[in-house]
Amino acid sequence: MSAPKLNVADVAGLARLSLTPDETTKFTAQLSQILAHMETLGQIATGDVPEVVPPAQPVLRPDMPTPSLSVEAALANAPAQSNDLILVPKIVE
């Protein structure tokens, strides 16, 4: 069973990972094996198997406010802050 088309460099780019060419080659081979293995699931005929619908509703929340964190607690882990805003490197789309 052949693995689906895989572009590790693209995926790494989307995940903000910088891979060396060696790593890219290595991970391409490893991930291809994993995907090929997963492809075996496709051999099972599921054409007339009905979809499993969860029997019950997930837990939903009534629209009632609960306490929030204090501003101090919310900002406690922020690397930088100013005027109660969390500061980040400037990003303008």
């Binding site: 919310a74 930088a80 109660d84 500061l87 400037k90 990003i91 303008v92």
Partner: peptide, 13 residues
């Protein structure tokens, strides 16, 4: 909501 300043951006969640 983001606020953009000279060198950095500030975020209000």
């Amino acid at each position: 909501k983001s606020f953009h300043y000279e060198e950095r951006s500030g975020i209000d969640f």
